[in-house]
C-alpha cells in the first residue's frame, strides 16, 4: 500500500521537495558545523553548546576566572566595580560574554580599537557613577585562579592575571 502522503490535499509533486529537504539537511549541517568551528557561530544555526572549551578539571586542579573593573581617576586613585555594576542594563546571562567580546584584549575580543564614536563617552558615563571625580580610564583585569581539589576545604593555590585591558577616556 502506498504511503498516505498528505491528508490535507497537497499535490503529490511536493513529496520530492520533502525528500530533498531530508537529504539536504545533512550536508547543510556539516557545512554549518565546520563553519562554526573554523570561522564563528552563525545565527540561526542548529547547534547546542558543547562546553568543550571550558576549563576541564583534573583530579587535583580546577580553574575559575574573575573579572574586575578598575575605574581610574586623574589623581591616580582607582575604584573597583563589578561587571554587574557596569552592565546593569544587560541581562545577567549576557554580561560575562559582553566583557569578553568587547572589553578584553586580542585575541579574545571580537572588536578592536579604534572603538566606535561615542563608545568611550558611554563607558565614561557608566563608570562615572562609581567615582566622585571624573574618570579618566578604566582597566579590566582578568584573573585565573587555580584551586587545589585535594585540600579540605578546597583552596586557591595560584592566581594569574591573564589579561589587563585598559581603555583611556579621551
Amino acid at each position: 500500500m502506498r504511503t498516505e502522503f498528505d491528508q490535507t490535499g497537497r499535490p503529490a509533486g511536493s513529496r520530492w521537495l520533502i525528500r530533498g529537504l531530508f537529504i539536504v539537511i545533512w550536508p547543510v549541517f556539516l557545512v554549518q558545523y565546520l563553519y562554526y568551528h573554523q570561522v564563528g557561530e552563525p545565527y540561526p544555526a542548529v547547534l547546542l553548546p558543547s562546553f568543550a572549551g571550558s576549563d576541564v578539571a583534573s583530579r587535583e586542579r580546577a580553574y575559575t576566572e574573575q573579572i574586575e573593573i578598575h575605574v581610574l581617576q586623574a589623581d591616580g586613585s582607582r575604584v573597583v566595580c563589578s561587571m554587574d555594576d557596569l552592565l546593569k542594563d544587560a541581562p545577567p546571562a549576557h554580561r560575562r560574554n559582553i566583557m569578553k567580546t568587547s572589553l578584553s584584549s586580542p585575541p579574545h575580543s571580537w572588536i578592536r580599537p579604534p572603538y566606535r564614536e561615542g563608545f568611550h563617552a558611554w563607558l565614561r558615563a557608566h563608570c562615572a557613577v562609581f567615582v566622585e571625580g571624573d574618570p579618566v580610564a578604566m582597566e579590566v583585569i582578568y584573573t585565573r585562579f587555580t584551586h587545589d581539589l585535594t585540600r579540605r576545604p578546597v583552596a586557591v593555590i595560584g592566581e594569574t592575571v591573564t589579561d589587563r585591558h585598559r581603555i583611556d577616556f579621551k
Binding site: 558543547s50 568543550a52 578539571a57
Partner: peptide, 25 residues
C-alpha cells in the same frame, strides 16, 4: 553538535573531569 566537540576535546580522557570542572566554575 554538542557531543562531537566534547569527544574531540578530551572529555573521555581518564585524567580529566569536565563535568566537575563546569560544576566548580
Amino acid at each position: 553538535s554538542a557531543g562531537l566537540p566534547k569527544l574531540l576535546g578530551g572529555w573521555l580522557h581518564l585524567d580529566s573531569m569536565a563535568v566537575r570542572g563546569k560544576l566548580f566554575t
